[in-house]
Simulated assay, not measured.
Amino acid sequence: MATILENIKLPIKRNKKIPIYVVEEHNDALQFIYSAIGGKKLPVEGTVLLHLDAHPDMLIDRKLKGEDARSGRKLLPLLQIENWIVPAAAAGHVARVVWLRPPWAKQFSDGTRKFHVGDHPETGLLRVDSKEPYYLSDALFSTLLSNKRELTLTVEELSCETSKEDKMKNLLAKIDITQPYVLDIDLDFFSTGNPFLGLYENINLYDRLLPIFDFPLPESDDVETLEKLVESREQQLQELENLFEHLDKNNSLDSYTGNKSHLYNMVNELASVVLAEAKRLNEVPDWWAVYAGGCTRDQDGLPYHISTKEEIKETVDKALTPLLQSLPVPVLITIARSTDDGYCPPHQVDYIQSLVLESVMKVYDTDEPALYYLNVNIST
């Protein structure tokens, strides 16, 4: 029995050199983690993900079913950049996530927490029992879970200040990285854009979306209160999705047959302003882009910090490299560019990538990086 358990926890094979995979969209990193599991370089269960990013990427598609999360590689086409980690945890492949954030990213408070991910018994949809605002805002909270898995999330800041000896020792003690683990780096950790800030900026669209998509958190966090909140939030999000789906198809809400609620009135008023601006620009509005921007407006919106070239190099030299030198060796390394979607500034991404690769390859014995983003149409 002990041998069986050891085989579950430990990888059976080791890479001669650490592979590095560079992707564009961050969710594409997961296929290489799954391949490492299939190749017995990672265990089927219990992997640690060390995630350096300006965003947690730990949401769940509200319509993703638990059975899909456990469907192996069939899951991959269903994922997006913000929701690829928790489904892997639902399948048991990832047991712990360590999110190292830059100083300007504060979607979670620092520290360690445990929660469960599993299936809602009535709908089969994947949900978590975490009371974090991050999950409440997407109506993802539920205490009623089947097929549940425990997930440990540790959040800590990584900055140039961390390189000071006592602070690095303190950080290492808090994150407690053990093998086997995957080192996962998003280049927007070093400089972070917000693509929605430039969407119809002449009419201040991003600010206009706030009162439409925002919702107040309750003072109490008892389960009954949160369940009512989630039900109300789900209705709000579904109504907004219906409204923007109608706009996408008809470019107007004139023929909308749904509930003419206060939310309808706010979206209708916004639509008239957006249509006028789009007409001025001689273009057709991208209503799903407007909707996606609105979905980021809850809880203070997305992080935004465009670093200088000097700041980027200093962060690599004084934060990333000392961290890597202090860690055990990872099984594999994934790097996301995140520039096509505007999160890593396009004019900086190649510079950041070169510095990060130089740092990683200096510290570890690695293969030549596999630049997957240059061959995104290959079969996976």
Score class of each variant (00 low, 15 high):
32 F>K: 00
194 N>M: 10
48 V>Y: 00
18 I>T: 14
320 L>W: 04
124 G>P: 08
197 L>G: 05
301 G>W: 01
253 L>D: 11
130 S>V: 05
232 S>I: 07
334 T>M: 08
238 Q>P: 00
23 V>T: 15
349 V>D: 05
176 D>N: 03
138 D>G: 13
133 P>C: 05
20 I>G: 13
84 W>C: 05
131 K>R: 15
211 P>Y: 14
71 S>I: 00
377 N>K: 08
2 A>R: 14
325 Q>V: 05
136 L>K: 02
101 R>H: 12
369 P>K: 08
220 S>C: 10
132 E>D: 15
287 W>A: 11
40 K>T: 10
108 F>G: 09
278 A>E: 05
2 A>Q: 09
32 F>C: 06
131 K>W: 02
171 L>K: 04
341 D>M: 12
46 G>C: 08
134 Y>F: 11
328 P>I: 02
166 D>A: 11
148 K>D: 13
293 G>N: 06
97 V>L: 04
357 L>Q: 04
225 T>P: 06
359 S>Q: 04
21 Y>T: 02
185 I>N: 04
19 P>F: 01
1 M>R: 12
250 N>A: 09
138 D>V: 02
176 D>P: 00
351 Y>A: 06
149 R>F: 07
311 E>N: 03
271 A>R: 02
91 A>G: 09
138 D>H: 07
340 D>K: 15
286 D>I: 10
38 G>F: 06
130 S>D: 14
379 S>M: 00
48 V>C: 01
144 L>V: 06
66 G>F: 02
219 E>T: 06
250 N>R: 11
116 H>M: 07
345 P>A: 07
16 K>T: 14
5 L>K: 15
160 C>R: 07
342 G>R: 09
144 L>G: 06
158 L>F: 13
163 S>G: 14
230 V>F: 05
229 L>G: 02
348 Q>L: 15
39 G>I: 04
65 K>H: 13
305 H>Q: 09
351 Y>Q: 05
251 N>L: 13
191 S>P: 10
131 K>P: 03
179 Q>C: 03
153 L>W: 00
145 L>V: 00
331 V>W: 01
144 L>F: 13
227 E>V: 14
26 H>V: 03
88 A>I: 12
109 S>K: 14
325 Q>H: 06
272 S>K: 15
251 N>G: 15
96 R>T: 10
197 L>A: 05
78 L>S: 08
378 I>Q: 09
220 S>M: 09
